[in-house]
């Protein structure tokens, strides 16, 4: 049986860890609140942009653009939005599993990856995955410029014909306890024509308007995926750190019990020895 002093040392070390996990949980919680606010703040823009595109589609006229072109799908690119840091429970594992399932589909099309986040990169770099591009260091609050860079890369690969379809794999934030790995198509764009509220004047021309709107739409969609994934990561981190703190508490309780037992056993032994010694003298 371990000595009282050893156990006391272990309790102290577990208590230190508990402090750290507790602090990380609190930090994740406050960052999560900010991330959620950003998700909410980004919605009006994304929603209105989508609606504008739909109305442009509904207004008829010349509606063709390379980014709307459907081609026979021979090459699919996946943008995997993972995190840079770990200690966030099953967040990255879930995303990577979703990505692997997608990559394993056998339908004759080649599949490659555009990876956002160090964790996804670490995983797929060691395997024989076709990685087209990588983006790391987006930080705790992804900005629109980051979305723009990734969108530009994906659009270029699509426009050059290297990819016939681009999909995004990200974690949709449902709640702190629940984040769902989600796959959505980014390119080609398929605008749903809706709500023809009369004829629009289009300035300067539908073609130019599409040139401006479509990249903006992709950026906004990607930006939303980045924000959602970030919120999910922080949510997962919060949950993971919460259960780590809980586990540490349990462990401390168990160790304290063991320590008290050991101390009592030591005292009992001592008393027995003293009594035994005194009895021997009589």
């Amino acid at each position: 049986m371990a000595g009282v002093r050893d156990i006391r040392r272990r309790i102290r070390s577990v208590a230190n860890m508990q402090q750290i996990t507790k602090a990380m949980k609190m930090v994740a919680a406050s960052k999560l609140r900010r991330a959620q606010e950003k998700v909410v703040a980004s919605r009006p823009y994304a929603e209105k942009l989508r609606a504008m595109l739909a109305r442009l589609a509904a207004s008829g006229g010349d509606f063709s653009h390379p980014l709307l072109d459907k081609r026979p799908v021979k090459n699919i690119g996946y943008i995997l939005v993972s995190s840079d840091k770990g200690l966030c429970g099953g967040f990255n594992a879930n995303l990577i599993r979703a990505a692997r399932e997608e990559l394993a589909v056998e339908d004759g099309a080649a599949r490659s990856l555009i990876i956002v986040g160090q964790k996804g990169l670490d995983f797929f770099r060691r395997r024989d995955a076709d990685i087209r591009a990588q983006f790391t260091g987006t930080g705790d609050s992804p900005d629109f410029a980051a979305a723009r860079r990734i969108a530009a890369q994906a659009t270029e690969l699509y426009a050059s014909g290297a990819l016939d379809e681009v999909r995004v794999i990200y974690a949709r934030f449902v709640s702190v306890l629940n984040q769902i790995p989600t796959v959505v198509r980014l390119l080609p764009i398929e605008p749903a024509a809706e709500g023809g509220a009369g004829e629009y004047i289009i300035e300067p021309s539908p073609a130019v308007m599409l040139d401006l709107l479509l990249p903006g739409y992709i950026e906004s969609k990607l930006f939303n995926a980045l924000l959602e994934s970030k919120a999910s990561e922080l949510g997962a981190k919060m949950t993971a750190m919460d259960s780590a703190t809980e586990n540490a508490k349990e462990m401390i309780d168990k160790l304290t019990l063991a320590m008290n037992r050991a101390r009592q056993a030591a005292i009992t032994t001592e008393i027995t020895e003293i009594v035994g010694g005194a009895a021997a003298l009589e």
Partner: peptide
């Protein structure tokens, strides 16, 4: 209404 990706 003026909206940007970062918010209204």
């Amino acid at each position: 209404t003026v909206a940007a990706p970062a918010g209204e």
